[in-house]
């Protein structure tokens, strides 16, 4: 739903002009700091609804920012990725507003239904916050993989684009995470080992889109077991991309 207002905000607070502004520093980080290399960009659909499912890590969700920039750059700057965030993000002062203006959306079903009906490119991290907060020793081991993305893909008949992000898991090792603080609803307070993220090189690997309807049938979204299998299919695909990416990588900073 668009406003009739000159600056065209959508219901979630997204403003394409704000995205363009925010992209300047993000693009600099993408090009010069994390020196992102992308593989398999030909798999990114240039039109139609799609769910991008990726691994999540890095203390702060810098992987979401880099993936968003990468998707935007590799779709001829025509598709604004709509990154799905945890609910607590809306509660964070300033950050919540910034995220909303650049297209982030709280992960409620109705929100995502609306985006997919509008044929948007929706980015989800099925590991959720447990991916961001995992210890260094758990790097590149996918955490509990939620099934919501598979259910959405099946219900809306849209493909899932699996993505393996290499680099983010080493960008900011956590010394500790303090639970119980719950400032603004955040699940924990991260204590990173370094004051800034390390300038690791990101390698973003895009896999071939997965047609879950073709593999599991139309009614799979109503069957919990099939739904779990569909989510595992996506998970396995992301894990394969991670394994491939780690094999190809010559060093954390290279």
């Amino acid at each position: 739903m668009k406003g009739t207002h000159p600056a065209n905000y959508d219901a979630f607070g997204f403003l394409p002009e704000a995205m363009e502004e925010a992209l300047r520093p993000a693009r600099w980080l993408h090009k010069n700091y994390f020196r992102v290399k992308s593989y398999g960009v030909e798999h990114i659909p240039l039109s139609g609804g799609v769910i991008v499912a990726a691994n999540h890590s890095g203390a702060l969700p810098m992987d979401g920012v880099m993936l968003g920039v990468d998707l935007f750059e590799n779709t001829n700057r025509k598709r604004f990725p709509r990154v799905v965030t945890d609910h607590f993000v809306a509660r964070l002062p300033y950050i919540g507003v910034l995220f909303a203006r650049v297209g982030a959306v709280g992960g409620s079903r109705r929100n995502l239904d609306s985006l997919l009906e509008s044929e948007e490119l929706v980015v989800v991290f099925p590991e959720g916050t447990s991916g961001v907060g995992k210890p260094y020793s758990e790097r590149y081991k996918l955490q509990h993989w939620h099934v919501g993305h598979a259910e959405l893909a099946l219900r809306h008949k849209v493909p899932v684009l699996p993505v393996g992000i290499i680099g983010a898991e080493e960008q900011w090792p956590l010394l500790a995470r303090i639970g119980g603080v719950r400032a603004f609803g955040a699940p924990y307070l991260p204590i990173p080992a370094t004051p800034l993220p390390l300038p690791v090189r990101y390698h973003i690997h895009y896999g071939a889109p997965i047609d879950l309807i073709a593999e599991f049938g139309e009614g799979a979204s109503e069957d919990p077991q099939l739904l779990q299998k569909a989510a595992e299919r996506v998970r396995d695909s992301v894990q394969s991309l991670l394994t491939l990416g780690l094999e190809q990588r010559q060093g954390v900073f290279r």
Binding site: F12, F88, A90, G106, S108, R109, R110
Partner: peptide, 12 residues
């Protein structure tokens, strides 16, 4: 609330 959908349906 923060955990509820931004887009408010009739079943909200």
């Amino acid at each position: 609330e923060d955990h509820l959908p931004t887009l408010i349906g009739e079943d909200h």
